[in-house]
Design a protein around this nucleic acid. Structure first.
Lengths: 189, 189
DNA sequence: CGGCTCACTTGATCTAGATCAAGAAATCAG
DNA sequence: CTGATTTCTTGATCTAGATCAAGTGAGCCG
């Protein structure tokens, strides 16, 4: 079983035949550090799976950048509103390190239902899962302090903190790098 | 065409026959002011459409309540993670006023695909739309001031501000009622 | 090895928005 | 209509976290 199949299996309830079929649509690709997977305004006609490396999802404002998310190995990456609704994509997605991904393009993606009968159900569960993740995130902004938000991310994704410049993590948590630095210091005692 | 069909049409690309079939599954219900549509911890085995009135989605913390969302007429309401994944629901949903809804129960909901061939596709688009709405909301917390968040909600949903106590709106925007009051005052000039 | 460039930390100060407290308005029940 | 309750406003004060400004240190490349 390939890495990709292995990971697909952790997300989706597929049997070996289905795994093989789905995985066959994904083509390996490499991004060099700094390469863009996607640019704001372009159409995102693909969905990818991160095998290794780091992809940062962000927007450029006039005076600063806002990081929305960082995808590490084992995550999928795309701009959903662009992929599904054909809208210009809202995010830039850039490789923070050399990154290995598997990519399925939109036309293949949209055909998956023909080959995998339970694809529509699977896809629904997948998007619903993404929805509830964001729901939690909204809730964290409504109800938690910076320190609490930091702790939750840290507990759930420790590796991230060794691999990614603090400023990006701070931005996706809605705080400054200085604040994270102070939270860390405080927690030493 | 009933109210419900009319609204379904604004969300979904159904023809008249499909509209009729889908609408037939929804049963009208009335909630009195203060009634609960759903309680934290219970299973949410239904999806509803708000015809009139107001439903507040919130969580009780030890020391306060956090309002996640308020559904007005024309919105759907459910706890998606509970409906789709059978988890205990995370939110309380309570009627702020007498409220008229149309409800489809989970077993019927899960059968829709049998009667409406394009239901799976439609459902996917619907959930994806909800996802991007939350994505915008997360982005608003990462990049905007209280005043900017207030303005966006106010522009997109003016009626809400006449109908709902300020404290609930404040909570769903992640600020206090006093802050909204001051933003308003400031904007008089 | 020494000089650059980033990333991170730390301190000093500032500020958006929270909290606390008191009135004023509006809404509601009898 | 009247008193009670809830909601909204306004002021005074406080604080979490931002901003600004120096350092410190760790890779990296010549």
């Amino acid at each position: 079983m390939t890495d990709l199949e292995q990971y697909l299996q952790t997300y989706f309830d597929f049997d070996q035949t289905e795994l093989g079929k789905v995985a066959a649509f994904f083509k390996p690709e490499m991004l060099k550090k700094g390469d863009y997977y996607l640019r704001t305004g372009r159409s995102c006609n693909k969905l990818s799976f991160v095998q290794s490396g780091l992809l940062r999802v962000y927007v450029e404002l006039e005076d600063r950048e806002v990081t929305q998310w960082i995808s590490t190995n084992g995550y999928f990456i795309t701009d959903l509103s662009s992929l599904v609704f054909d809208k210009p994509s809202r995010w830039n997605i850039q490789a923070l390190t050399d990154t290995a991904i598997y990519t399925i393009d939109k036309s293949d993606y949209n055909q998956l239902g023909r080959y995998i009968p339970k694809w529509p159900q699977t896809e629904k569960l997948f998007i619903a899962h993404c929805f509830t993740t964001l729901e939690d995130r909204v809730f964290s902004f409504l109800s938690m302090t910076a320190e609490q938000r930091y702790n939750i991310l840290f507990e759930s994704n420790r590796e991230l903190f060794n691999q990614v410049p603090l400023q990006y993590i701070a931005s996706m948590l809605g705080m400054t790098p200085e604040t994270i630095s102070r939270i860390r210091r405080k927690q030493l005692f």
